[in-house]
Design a protein around this nucleic acid. Sequence first.
DNA 1: TTGTAAGCGTTATCAA
DNA 2: TTGATAACGCTTACAA
Lengths: 343, 343
Amino acid sequence: MTKITIKHIAQSLGLSVSSVSKALNDSYEISEETKIRVRNYAKENHYKPNRLAKSLKGGHSNTIGVVVCSINNIFVSQILDGIQKASYETEYDIIIMQSHENVENEKSCIEALLNKGVDGILLAPVSETSNTEYLRQINSEVCPVVLFDRFNPSLETMKIGVNEYKGALQATQHLIRINRKKIVFITGCQFGENNPRIQGFKKALKTLDIPFYPKFMLTCNLENSEMMDQQISQALTELLKSKVKPNAIFGATGVITIRVLGILAQMKVKVPEEIAVIGFSNFDMPFALNPSLSSIRQPTQEIGFTALTKLVDLLNMEQHKRHRAYETILLDTTIHFNKSTDL
Amino acid sequence: MTKITIKHIAQSLGLSVSSVSKALNDSYEISEETKIRVRNYAKENHYKPNRLAKSLKGGHSNTIGVVVCSINNIFVSQILDGIQKASYETEYDIIIMQSHENVENEKSCIEALLNKGVDGILLAPVSETSNTEYLRQINSEVCPVVLFDRFNPSLETMKIGVNEYKGALQATQHLIRINRKKIVFITGCQFGENNPRIQGFKKALKTLDIPFYPKFMLTCNLENSEMMDQQISQALTELLKSKVKPNAIFGATGVITIRVLGILAQMKVKVPEEIAVIGFSNFDMPFALNPSLSSIRQPTQEIGFTALTKLVDLLNMEQHKRHRAYETILLDTTIHFNKSTDL
DNA sequence: TTGTAAGCGTTATCAA
DNA sequence: TTGATAACGCTTACAA
């Protein structure tokens, strides 16, 4: 069970270390016969190249860093699953870091990854503007940074996400179709005004000349779920008392949407009779929810898989050619109607 | 932004490489004055030691491998969160692998980790007997293996889990207390007969002389959630038609418990009126469920944190002293009563 | 107190 | 076709 190295092989076979290395790497300089001898010996003795030595020599760590808001989140863990799946087919290891929806944490995560010598970074930015300059510098001077899930519009790099605009548009249209036009839209405070989910929502209203109530735009803190619950339930309580009473809620993220369901249940507000609910959510068991949730589902596995694959593609290119490969990939969402909008 | 090495520092300061190394490592051989010069220069120029070189030299990778059934699972991701948190305070990187509840995958994961040269392994075994011999060999000859969540009773090593027996006992007692004595117990097929959750359940029945119906022990496939849904709903449909109709369900894992809720909702079975439901679950938003779920909650963060901490402790000990440090830590669960058992 | 040199396991250059 | 040697960045006897 003891580790065997090239040196051992060389000694046992009466070859030099360099010849063995070349044989193992299928170099043209080595005779077929020797290659076979070496390969056989290596296989029989379970030789495994030492990745550390290889990396040290090669100047890269064969490691990719991933920064997400929180591992402990269904949406994120599905993406991570996709990233892992893609990574199995490569030589890269994955190191995961959590920004916890905080811009400064995000920077620390990236710094930590850089210290570890990662060859590339996969990042779901905290906000649309977080660490822009820093990231730009990293991407052009240190290692490629591929963005996924959320984008930083002013950062030129590879981006993989979903067509949020379309998803939000369709979901809103559905609410309107079932005659729920007084829609509360709940987002995280990291969402900028130009967020495509907000834009899709507004677009749907505008097209059909439905009035937009600014006070129906709710913003909550994604960093802390207790605060979030408080903020949402307080805001909803007030809105339900106001003269223009809402009759639907659109949740901009999975956590928001599902928490809203819980909050409404505790407030004894009937869904969908009093308030219809729809939102982004990748929760796997919509029927277990109260009531079964209508949702916009994102192809999370594919996001992760694509992001990692594209990053590896970049890594395999010469640095100066990379910028030409930059693209923004928008995958399609799917929309699922269940009881929470069933009228 | 270019990487700086010990060599650069040595040249700039007119010192030798070894002196710089020693200064940086606070060796007694180096004068205070030199140390300060070196440290300052290092700090000013953002010197970061190359971990690869350090590891290659030191003969360890500073990496810990973690094998879980699936990242994409609330319970697991909470544990991973705990592991990460603990790892921040160490020099170790974490590499995660997924066994997908399959014994052979589990072995491949471990092999892959060993190839990467991990210094230790954190493993949530697929079953109570999976890969016993292999793991024993690894643990004694290669690197420490710490078990968490599920245990392999015949493997002598460090183990971190929860008092499942007690949790199951309490939950069952609660069902009995609300006069629900015909309890269907649903487990995964990886659970052996001696699993503490099953034992706790049986004990509660036995103590109060409640009959145990073998056909109320349901087993489902945890590898595939569609199959699982099918198996459970089919079995329940039959049981509900039989002469001894169940009036409660105990779910042995979070996925089972929540899926049961969804299945019952689709079968239009009223919870808790017709069937009360309780089970292990670490789902964060019990109130969003239909109905709000009574559950046994495990201290997932703490499990992960403890497991990693203990593994690092082992790593810091001399190999031959490790076995003396082995212990089995059982953390307490908490039980939460909600609507699904509210009678 | 500081420096020299060897070595961790590879790969790459150049000679033989 | 094969081998000797240097190098990647760091640590550590051993010498000076």
